[in-house]
């Protein structure tokens, strides 16, 4: 289990959350801009510190004064802007965390590089990559460091529609990579529905609601959601969230997020 409780202020922003999710699958953190999604992720990584308690798989990372430094946590973090090391090649980036996790350029490395379609890019510098390629490298770099928890902060937000379509299939790859629990921040209902096993709906620094997407009565519901999304678009789907049992908060947040400029899922 991943259990977290944070309550406090950070630079004028107040976060007040309590969550308990299984240490597996994809937990989508969903909500409008400024609702505290990134702050929550940074607290999980230890990059920001707000009073509270955090334990992952029975290991306590934060409790009162106890605070495990980020480099001792073994979290993979995919930043919105990729944050590649510009002085290292793609290979150097991918190996940065892997070497420090005591692992080498082994078969697992080759397999993941192939699955993310990075084979041909290994000797390039980050400056010679497209936005979509940069994000794939960032995802690979985080995964290859053998993380116990993977945190992704709107990895598609900085990309245009074409680049999103290019990266999205690789996120599906990620979903199928077993074992590593993922927190995935987005304000795009398309991504949320497509990737999530469960969804934390955030608003004004609080978790307004937790929606279980995986434990739907019909096991095919996720596929149904994805198909439905392509069929009717995000607005309609948001409305259907309400009809299918989620509270109006879901719909309201979805609509807010969408009117905030994210692209509806018609690609």
């Amino acid at each position: 289990m991943i259990e977290a409780r944070f309550r406090g202020r950070l630079g004028g922003f107040t976060l007040d959350v309590a969550l308990e999710v299984p240490a597996s699958g994809v937990t989508v953190v969903f909500g409008p801009s400024g609702s505290g999604k990134t702050t929550l992720l940074r607290c999980l990584a230890g990059l920001a510190r707000i009073d509270g308690r955090l334990s992952v798989g029975g290991e306590v990372w934060q409790d009162g004064r106890a605070f495990v430094a980020p480099h001792r946590r073994g979290v993979g973090y995919v930043f919105q802007d990729a944050a590649l090391f510009e002085h290292l090649s793609v290979r150097g980036n991918l190996m940065y965390g892997r070497r420090r996790a005591g692992l080498g350029a082994d078969a697992e490395f080759d397999r993941l590089v192939a699955r993310l379609g990075l084979d041909g890019l290994l000797d390039r510098g980050p400056g010679k990559l497209s936005g979509g390629e940069r994000q794939r490298v960032a995802i690979g770099r985080a995964l290859l460091s053998n993380p116990r928890l993977l945190l992704m902060d709107e990895p598609l937000a900085g990309l245009d529609a074409a680049r999103r379509a290019e990266v999205a299939p690789y996120l599906e790859v990620l979903r199928r990579e077993k074992g590593v629990p993922i927190f995935y921040v987005t304000h795009d209902v398309t991504e949320a529905a497509r990737l999530g096993d469960r969804m934390l709906l955030m608003r004004a620094g609080r978790i307004a609601e937790t929606v279980d997407l995986a434990a739907a009565p019909d096991p095919g519901e996720r596929t149904w959601l994805a198909a439905r999304l392509e069929q009717v678009g995000a607005d309609e789907l948001a409305a259907e969230f309400v009809l299918s049992g989620a509270s109006p908060t879901v719909a309201r947040l979805a609509v807010e997020a969408l009117s905030g400029g994210s692209t509806p899922g018609r690609n």
Partner: peptide, 10 residues
């Protein structure tokens, strides 16, 4: 970049 390095165990 330093935050990225920290999450990569540096």
């Amino acid at each position: 970049p330093l935050e990225a390095a920290a999450t990569l165990r540096a």
